[in-house]
Amino acid sequence: MNALTAALKEELNVEMVSVFGLFIPESVVVSWGIMAFLVLGSILLTRNLRVEHITKRQAVLETVVTTINDFFVGLLGENGKRYVPYLVSVALYIGCSNLIGVFGIKPPTKDLNVTAALALMSIVLIEYAGIHARGGPGFLKSLTAPTPIMTPMNILEIAIRPTSLCMRLFGNVLGAFVIMELIKLVVPVFVPAVFSLYFDLFDGLIQTYVFVFLTSLFMKESIGDEE
């Protein structure tokens, strides 16, 4: 168990990396790399798009974009359509962050600061969506639903949501690491490779889906029935 404790401490430790003489958290540097990769990929995928004589690449890209857009619009409704780009951006970032562990790089989502920042951004957008859809008075009125006596609980719920999103993402990513270390201690050959494939690929994508799905549900609840 000493080996597990040491490995866990190493994973929780946020390394500092020197960039142009400045010491920056490793999770931030890796995040910059992921953002650069996503920006470059977006430029390459969207260059030379045509209205006529559509290429296979463009047809596949349009199909993927339409499918994703329809999925989120189905969750949020037409009033929530404006928030789809944010949700897709967050999904791409978290997905790449979770999958980057396959290449031997520590995922940024193992840093509690990163997951907390993602949760806070989502909650700010969720509450903004409610104010935008209902108006200021309507949003304040929703805090007293179904009865004014529930107002403290409704306010507390707003405070709890970012903690829930943050700890769910961070806990699952870290939990997968702990399980892998335990498996390596018990069965050090072959089996860990199979489970690593599951936790680094499948589980990482599942956690991405859960985060954006819950954000979408909270946003739909905040928007209400104002369609």
Rank of each mutant, 00 (worst) to 15 (best):
Ser89Met: 13
Phe103Thr: 01
Phe202Arg: 02
Ser97Pro: 06
Leu118Thr: 02
Ser164Thr: 01
Pro85Gln: 07
Val65Gln: 07
Gly224His: 00
Val90His: 04
Tyr198Asn: 04
Lys220Arg: 15
Phe202Asp: 05
Lys110Gly: 09
Val187Pro: 00
Ile105Tyr: 14
His53Gln: 07
Phe23Tyr: 10
Asn98Pro: 06
Pro137Tyr: 15
Gly80Asp: 05
Leu174Met: 14
Val187Lys: 01
Ser222Lys: 04
Tyr128Ile: 03
Lys56Val: 10
Glu52Lys: 15
Leu156Asp: 00
Glu78Arg: 05
Ile123Asp: 10
Leu49Thr: 05
Cys166Arg: 12
Asn113Val: 12
Ala129Lys: 01
Val212Arg: 11
Tyr209Glu: 06
Glu62Gln: 13
Leu169Gln: 11
Ile105Leu: 12
Leu49Ser: 14
Trp32Ser: 01
Gly80Thr: 01
Glu52Phe: 07
Ser18Asn: 12
Leu214Trp: 06
Val19Arg: 04
Gly171Thr: 07
Ile223Tyr: 13
Phe139Ser: 01
Val30Pro: 00
Asn98Tyr: 05
Leu143Gly: 04
Ile126Glu: 06
Asn69Phe: 15
Gly136Arg: 13
Ile123Val: 12
Arg168Met: 15
Asn13Thr: 14
Thr66Gln: 14
Ser18Gly: 02
Gly95Met: 09
Ile54Cys: 11
Ile183Ser: 03
Ile131Arg: 06
Ile24Phe: 04
Pro146Ser: 06
Leu205Ala: 04
Leu140Ser: 09
Cys96Gly: 05
